[in-house]
Design a protein around this nucleic acid. Structure first.
Length: 921
RNA sequence: GGGCGGUUAGCUCAGUUGGCUAGAGCGCCUGCCUUACAAGCAGGAUGUCACAGGUUCAAGUCCUGUACUGCCCACCA
């Protein structure tokens, strides 16, 4: 990078270069100011900690890119900016991956190796894969404060978890109880409601006859899970059912078990549903459980933790539940007790982690009583203390909280935060403590046994915004960086995670954990399906980075980040088997354009003289590009602040490519080569490039930093002398104090975000240049239509109203330059030369001389006439409508009138030209 | 079953409070290797804004309904 910019843009090279700059300046790291206290100069984001189970995919890429955009934007604005990184231990997910691995390699189960050994193995796994994830984040360009990297299971987080549990337990908000929970028979643990995914599967509806005890017949029940009959303790019927009166209270012989059960009446049974008779299995169905409680029925558990029939299943004991289902159906069939079998599709809960079918299972579990916590979390959003962007996602958050049920937080796993509860061997007392208790609080017995279960992963994730800052210690970090500012995530964890962070943040800190929740689109594959490992449709961001570069990937992802809820990302494989997608072309092409425009600039900034700059000598094109820059800065800043990403990025894109490259750079080429004129364009170019790099930096940090460093070498002293003030620092942050001492900073990452350019906004200049550009385009169009060689110089002229003619004449050199003309002039009296092609813009006729193909000209003009005619008709019909005149806003009516008058004039001119052409034949 | 989205050019998508002839990128067509850039330059073609009603002077935009489609939530045997 010490030589001039290489001819070809090489993303890898510049990525490595920029990384080194950032590392050597330690710019990602930040500390609270010495004087302390949370104030408006802090800006904090905590990363949604990726699970250590695997590698990152494009969903993470977009999530972290957007966080980095915000962080870099705010850092440049001078905030003391902390992006807290880390990973999540992801209890079930990680343990099951390691267990599978163990089984595949050694054939052993977790019980073979034991708790301690298994946990050790998982830690090893975590080291390996956690580091890989952090490596991926670095490649994406994430400017996290890596020195603060946390893990949900590390000492600091563990302390926070322990405190939270003990506090809630002492408040009575955590309790233990025997409840029907979602049981995963593969992982052998309870899982939360939201870890259960419902899938439609094809099953059967089995109609089974239960004989009446008195031999007077039978009732028929219908079920999708026949094996659960082993646990039936009643059959229910709606009391309003016609058959109810004679049957309630009667007794049934439960087939295969010989158990006698009663027929009971319960409103829950819906009339006309099934057979009208409902088998009641309180230990294996949530509704039946409720019925069981109401009627004080016996609850018979028929399953073992690993999903087999237990000793209560008689001769079916020991069979897998699905084998038992078959056997039971077969036996019932042979007994003639199956009335019929109907195929039926129904919703069945599956474990999100193991994929196993969830069984409702009665067991002792720990719960959080969420009512009071949810109430506060609801209030936080309803009062606007926490805002969702886009707003509509606030509704799913609130809906969920309004319907919330107690949260089962215990898991029968080994990987996770162990529940800080000790049972006394001598009395019934349940002990808890922030430190491990050594004796029972009540009877002083030393016979204590810790609860074997661990906590749901989300319990520790819920504390993430404050646990990572050191809570419960009142650290300087906690005081300064909490509450955090923005949480960036996808919509699928609004309930699982966002809501719980709000609950726990309010509970532990008394303050919301963040003020804004930025929900970005979900990335789907080309078929519109969600990416997942099992489907094999996930895309590794490193594939994309290898092919297109990190900046190109970031650009494209940002460009796609609109308010829509999904992003389709069709990919194909290249010859090396890497995923590629033309969606990233826009980013790659743009980065290439930035590279080349910068190369051009560097080549033309040699000898830049800051002190020679004279504001009085600014050319109209200089004023124009500065005005465009100022407008763009304003738009970008406003939109980024309101969580728009695509729009501000595309505003810079248009400015950079269409204004700066297509017009300004071309226009200054002659002046910049002329020693007597070069000072203004050189200084303006350096300034505009500098400020454009600043705006682009949050989106494409590597390439902009690389170029900025080069710019610092080529033009160490820059800015517009006498106009732009050297921008100082507005921060308390030690790092950002290093911000520009002159007009430039030592690194772009800490350069000041552009501001205060409103003085450059110049509507008159912009409108004049627009007139010039339209004229150039009209001439080019004619050239193209006549396939005039680009190198051939032509002569052109224009008939225009006096004011327009003046603008055109004043800028004739600009027009000649961009339309490749040898001469151009305009006046209100200008006549159309013989053999000239003509075009009409507004009140102006453009003539390009020497083009005499009458046929082609007629065709061109005919088309132009049709277009204008359509406009005339549209406006006429509006104006002939009395209601339009009377009801539309006066300025709209006035506009329409003017527009119509203009169009009519143009039409007349074109028709004259057409007539003249025809006559000349 | 409840809730939230989507349907705009061949493809992937923008379109803020209703208001000039509905836009971008890619792809396509024509002409250019013009000393920053062929990953480029100049120009061009392409739309019943899903469908049906309604409100309005005016609807891609607001309202109602329909169709298709995606996601979230949900204990129906």
């Amino acid at each position: 990078m010490t030589e001039e910019l290489s001819k070809v843009y090489e993303p890898k090279e510049i990525e490595r270069f920029a990384e080194k700059i950032w590392e050597s300046g330690n710019y990602f790291h930040t500390e609270p100011p010495a004087k302390g206290g949370r104030n408006s100069t802090a800006y904090t984001i905590v990363i949604p900690p990726p699970n250590v189970t695997g590698a990152l995919h494009m969903g993470h890429a977009i999530d972290n890119t957007l966080q980095d955009v915000l962080i870099r934007f705010k850092r440049m604005q001078g905030f003391n900016t902390l992006w807290m990184p880390g990973t999540d231990h992801a209890g079930i997910a990680t343990q099951s991956v390691v267990e599978k691995n163990l089984k595949a390699k050694t054939g052993k189960t977790r019980h073979d190796v034991g708790r301690e050994k298994l946990v050790e193995m998982i830690w090893e796994w975590k080291e390996q894969y956690g580091n890989r994830i952090l490596g991926q984040l670095k490649r994406i360009g994430a400017s996290c404060d890596w020195q603060r990297t946390r893990f949900t299971l590390d000492q600091m987080c563990a302390k926070a978890v322990r405190h939270t549990f003990v506090n809630l337990f002492k408040k009575g908000l955590i309790y233990r109880g025997k409840r029907l929970v979602n049981w995963d028979s593969v992982l052998q643990t309870a899982v939360a409601d939201d870890e259960v995914v419902h899938k439609t599967i094809k099953g059967n509806f089995w109609y089974i006859k239960y004989p009446l005890d008195d031999g007077s017949g039978f009732v028929t029940i219908a079920t999708t899970r026949p094996e659960t009959m082993l646990g039936d303790t009643a059959v229910a019927v709606n009391p309003k059912d016609k058959r109810a009166k004679s049957l309630i209270g009667k007794r049934l012989q439960l087939p295969l078990t010989g158990r006698v059960i009663s027929i009971i009446g319960d409103d829950y049974v819906k009339l006309g549903e099934g057979t009208g008779f409902l088998k009641v299995t309180p230990a294996h169905d949530p509704n039946d459980y409720e019925i069981g409680l109401r009627h004080k029925l016996e609850m018979i558990n028929i399953l073992t933790p690993d999903g087999k029939i237990n000793e209560n299943g008689g001769k079916f004991a020991g069979m897998d539940r699905y084998a038992a289902r078959k056997a039971i159906v077969a036996e019932l069939e042979s007994l003639g007790l199956i009335e019929k079998i109907e195929p039926r599709e129904h919703e069945v809960g599956h474990s999100d982690r193991s994929g196993d079918i969830i069984e409702p299972y009665l067991s002792d579990q720990w719960f959080v009583k969420v009512g009071p916590l949810a109430k506060n979390a609801i209030e936080a959003v309803e009062s606007g203390k926490v805002k969702f962007h886009p707003e509509r996602y606030g509704k799913s958050y609130l809906d969920w909280l309004y319907g919330i049920r107690d949260w089962c937080i215990s898991r029968q796993l080994w990987w996770g935060h162990r529940i800080p509860i000790w049972y006394c061997g001598n009395c019934e007392h349940i002990n808890t403590g922030i430190d491990d208790p050594t004796e029972c609080e009540k009877c002083k017995s030393k016979d204590l046994k810790q609860d074997p279960d661990v906590l749901d992963t989300w319990f520790s994730s819920a504390l993430w915004p404050h646990s990572t800052l050191g809570w419960p210690e009142q650290t300087e970090e906690l005081k300064f960086y909490y509450p955090t500012n923005t949480l960036v995530t996808a919509r699928d964890i609004i309930t699982l995670w966002v809501s719980r962070m709000v609950m726990m943040g309010l509970e532990n800190m008394g303050q919301v954990p963040f003020s804004d929740v930025f929900i970005h689109p979900t990335i789907l594959d080309g078929n519109g399906e969600r990416m997942s490992k099992s489907k094999g449709n996930g895309i590794d961001p490193l594939d994309i980075i290898d092919t297109y570069g990190a900046d190109a990937m970031r650009f494209s992802l940002c460009q796609m980040t609109t308010e829509s809820q999904d992003l389709k990302l069709p990919v194909t494989k290249d010859e090396h088997g890497k995923n590629i997608s033309e969606k990233f072309d826009i980013g790659r092409n743009f980065c290439n354009k930035v590279w080349n425009a910068s190369r051009f600039s560097m080549m033309n900034l040699e000898g830049l003289n800051y002190d020679a700059f004279d504001a009085a000598k600014l050319h109209i094109t200089d004023k124009w590009i500065l005005s465009r820059l100022a407008q763009t800065v304003n738009e970008v800043t406003t939109k980024l602040d309101s969580f728009e990403v695509s729009e501000p990025l595309m505003a810079i894109y248009r400015f950079f490519w269409n204004d700066l490259c297509d017009w300004y750079v071309e226009w200054i080429k002659p002046r910049i080569k002329d020693a007597s004129q070069k000072d203004a364009p050189q200084n303006v170019l350096a300034f505009v490039l500098d400020y454009t790099l600043r705006m682009l930096h949050p989106f494409i940090p590597f390439i902009t930093e690389g170029i900025y460093q080069k710019l610092n070498e080529v033009a160490p002293k820059r800015g517009l002398k006498g106009i732009t003030n050297n921008q100082g620092t507005n921060s308390n942050n030690e790092i950002t104090k290093k911000q520009e001492t002159n007009s430039n900073a030592e690194a772009l990452i800490i350069a000041q975000w552009p501001k205060g350019l409103d003085k450059f906004i110049d509507a008159k200049t912009e409108s004049e240049i627009t007139t010039v550009q339209e004229t150039v385009r009209a001439i080019r169009e004619i050239r193209n239509k006549y396939t005039v060689a680009p190198s051939k110089k032509l002569a052109a002229s224009a008939n225009a109203p006096a004011d327009t003619a003046k603008i055109l004449n004043d800028n004739a050199d600009l027009i000649c330059d961009r339309a490749n003309l040898e001469k151009f002039s305009a006046s209100p009296e200008m006549a159309k030369p013989e053999n000239a092609a003509a075009s009409v813009i507004e009140q102006t006729q453009i003539f390009v001389e020497g083009l005499i193909d009458a046929q082609a000209e007629l065709k061109r003009l005919g088309k132009q006439r049709d277009e204008i005619m359509a406009g005339v008709k549209g406006n006429e019909s509006k104006l002939s409508n009395a209601n339009f005149i009377s009801r539309a806003k006066p300025e709209v009516v006035e506009q329409t009138k003017q527009r119509l008058a203009e169009l009519k004039e143009q039409l007349a001119v074109i028709e004259n030209n057409i007539a003249a052409l025809k006559n000349s034949h």
